[in-house]
Structures are given as structure tokens and as C-alpha cells.
Computed example of a mutant assay.
Amino acid sequence: MKATATLAGGCFWCTEAVYQSLNGVIGIESGYIGGTKANPTYEEVCTGTTGHAEAIRITYDPEVIGYADLLDIFFATHDPTTLNRQGNDVGTQYRSAIFPHDEEQRAEAVTGIERAQADWSDPIVTAIEPLGVWYPAEDYHQQYWDRVGTRNPYCMAVIPPKLQKLRKGFADRLRADA
């Protein structure tokens, strides 16, 4: 059995790196969602004028890891209280958003936000947005952390702390080889 989750939590390189080591995650694709331009390029999305968010589409086995777990990890590994910003990445393309695939996911997103708010002193600004059209990012963005991220100083400053939060709070959800 497979299910799909679509999340935007800042730079898709960073978000993808968090989810790739989870037990039950079958695959991850980086891409663009939530905008108005058909077939946007990375350069166009970076301008902030297309309305798209950098996001990841997670294919997972719900019998191994649940959507609620994916959301809990989402809220623990990025700052859902900053509007249109994650660290030095600023603009609507870096917004915190959940794109539910059905009404059950929409309801769980609302519950997930309520559950996560207890961990944050500032209000969570994560939006729940319509699913819309998904555009896969260019090939060089896929599996970025595994391929070249450790040679990118920006990624080395941002991703390891996220992975540390993941290991600390969700060790029971990690694959044995993670």
C-alpha cells in the first residue's frame, strides 16, 4: 500500500534530506506547487513571482509510518512560525505549507498544527493549501543532499542540525541504515 504527502518547509534540499532516512518512506521528489505559472523553472520560482513553493512529494507506506508522524517530523525539523522564511531563505517560495491529498489529510493537517503549537511559543503560520498541480523540480535538485549537499557550505550549515533534531526526537522512525 502506498500513500502520498506533499509538504513545503523551506528549501526542498533541506526538507528532502530529513525524510529520506525514515522507515516507511518509499521515495521523495522535490518540486514546485501552489503557484500560477505552468512548468516553472527553478530560476523562475526563485524570483518569488510564480506563487510556487519549493516542496517535496513523499511516497510512503502508511502501514509503516503514518501521515501524522510525517507531520510531527515536519513541525519539529523546520520553523513553522516564520512567514515566508526559513533561515536565510526568504520569499513565498520558502513558505511553510501542507498540501493535503484528500479530506482525511486535511483534517489531520489541522490536528497536526494544533498538536505542534504546544512546542512553539509563537503562533504557527503553516498554511493548508489546495493540492493544485505538482511540477517536479529539475533533475539536479533530486536527492541533492546525498549527491552533492555535503560539498555545499549552505547545506552543511542547515541540514545537519535538522538531521540531529530528527535523530533526537524520532529515532524510532529511522531506517536501520540511517
Rank of each mutant, 00 (worst) to 15 (best):
M1P: 13
M1E: 09
A3Y: 00
A5P: 09
A5E: 07
T6Y: 05
G9V: 02
F12M: 01
E16H: 05
Y19D: 06
Q20Y: 06
S21D: 14
L22A: 00
L22N: 04
N23T: 12
G24N: 09
V25C: 03
G27F: 00
I28G: 09
T36L: 06
K37C: 02
P40I: 11
P40S: 07
P40E: 14
T41A: 07
E44V: 12
V45K: 01
V45I: 04
T47V: 04
T47P: 05
T49M: 10
G51I: 14
A53M: 07
A53H: 00
R57L: 04
T59P: 04
Y60V: 02
Y60C: 05
I65G: 01
G66M: 06
Y67A: 06
A68S: 13
L70P: 06
D72M: 02
D72R: 09
F75Y: 08
T77P: 10
P80I: 12
T81P: 12
T82G: 00
T82P: 05
L83P: 06
L83V: 10
R85P: 06
D89L: 11
G91P: 13
G91I: 02
Y94C: 10
R95S: 11
D102R: 02
E104P: 00
Q105P: 05
R106T: 07
E108F: 01
A109H: 04
A109N: 02
G112I: 02
I113T: 10
E114H: 06
E114A: 15
R115E: 09
A116G: 14
Q117H: 03
A118P: 02
A118I: 04
W120I: 10
S121M: 10
I124Q: 01
I124T: 09
V125A: 11
E129S: 15
E129A: 15
V133G: 14
Y135C: 01
A137M: 01
D139S: 05
D139W: 03
Y140Q: 08
H141E: 04
Q143M: 07
Y144N: 11
D146G: 15
T150P: 03
T150M: 14
N152F: 01
C155M: 07
I159Y: 03
P160F: 13
P161V: 00
P161Y: 14
K162P: 09
K162S: 05
K165A: 12
K168S: 15
K168R: 10
F170C: 02
A171E: 06
L174I: 12
A178T: 08
A178N: 01
